[in-house]
Simulated assay, not measured.
Amino acid sequence: MSRDARWKALLELLVERGRLDVEEAAADLEVSAATIRRDFDLLAEQQMLVRTRGGAVPHGVSYELPLRYKTARHASEKQRVAEAVAGLIAPGEAVGLTGGTTTTEVARALAVRGDLASGSPALTVVTNALNIANELAVRPQFKIVVTGGVARAQSYELVGPLADAVLGRITLDVTVLGVVAFDAVHGAAANDEAEAAINQLLCERAERVVVAADSSKLGRRAFARICGVESVDTLVTDAAAGSDAVRPFEEAGVRVITA
């Protein structure tokens, strides 16, 4: 296992369990305790965790993994969701894409759609995510509009009032919304209030809103509210979401698609 893969695994375990002991982590990852101690020390230097006696705990009260460490989590589910979302977007539409791992997969699924390979442009994409803009900017079938703002290192998203001027002057056909949590009562949410504010604006400028969320996000709450369930037209999730998980959204009037 490479160091990068090991760090991803350690951080995911830390999020799931709330704390990790050196010996426990070494057994889970099948490496030596000395290796885990070095990993913990290096991750602590990057403020990714806090070292404790014999282990580590998450850094800060509201813990959020940087995007580069989230990519392996529920990867296959996110790709299936992304392909289904991409299929809902028609050529010539103006599309808002928020940041996140699932919306990044949506951008990649759009990039390989054969019917979008030509056109002038085939799609207009408005995003506050630097990584998404970077991936799509080299493809001539897309017109890319970046909101502006201050970059968050954790998510590569641009936030702050500089984005308001751009978003206040555009109209979107659809916004694809990536979320940390989506609940039928509390709505869609993110960990960071600045990201949530930009995401809310992208939703308000769209004729329809599609939430792209793997089943692990459903029925959960997070710190910063983006919008209520009444603002969402469609939820695309993976087949692991059972009927009990999706029924509250359907009862709230949301179209649910499982991929």
Rank of each mutant, 00 (worst) to 15 (best):
G228M: 13
A27T: 11
D173L: 13
V145T: 08
H59P: 06
V126A: 03
R221M: 10
H74T: 15
L218K: 03
R108I: 13
V85A: 02
A9E: 12
E30C: 08
I89K: 11
G149W: 00
M48W: 04
V146N: 05
A245D: 11
G178Y: 12
I198L: 12
Q46N: 02
R37I: 07
R80P: 04
R220H: 04
V210Q: 05
A27M: 10
K217Y: 08
G54P: 02
T101N: 00
G55F: 07
G149S: 10
P161S: 01
S32F: 04
R225W: 04
L97H: 09
V159C: 07
A82M: 03
V50I: 13
R255C: 03
N134T: 15
R53G: 08
I144H: 00
V246F: 12
T102K: 12
V61A: 09
D183N: 08
G100N: 08
A184L: 01
D28Y: 10
P91Q: 13
A213K: 09
R68S: 09
R17C: 01
V106T: 07
S215C: 15
R247D: 03
T35Q: 07
A189M: 07
A137Q: 05
L49H: 04
A165C: 05
R38N: 06
L136K: 10
R221C: 09
G100E: 00
Y69D: 01
I198D: 04
A206R: 12
E251H: 15
V146M: 13
P58M: 13
A189I: 05
V126P: 13
R152T: 01
G219F: 06
A184T: 11
A84N: 05
S76K: 13
D115N: 11
A5F: 07
T101Y: 00
V50T: 09
S118T: 11
A82Q: 08
L162P: 12
A84R: 13
A56Y: 03
D115K: 04
A117W: 15
V256R: 14
V176M: 06
G60C: 06
V185L: 14
L88K: 09
L97W: 05
A165W: 14
L13V: 02
G160N: 06
D173P: 07
A9R: 12
Y63N: 01
R6N: 01
D238R: 05
V150N: 15
I144G: 00
A245R: 13
S215V: 00
L123T: 05
A34R: 12
A122M: 05
L123W: 09
P248F: 02
L235C: 13
T237S: 07
S118A: 15
K143C: 05
A196N: 03
V179Q: 04
T98V: 02
R80V: 15
P161C: 03
I226H: 08
R73Y: 07
K78L: 03
S120P: 07
Q47H: 10
G253R: 14
S231Q: 09
L123E: 03
R247Y: 02
Y156S: 08
E24H: 06
A189F: 00
K143L: 12
S155F: 00
D39Y: 02
I170L: 11
A181V: 01
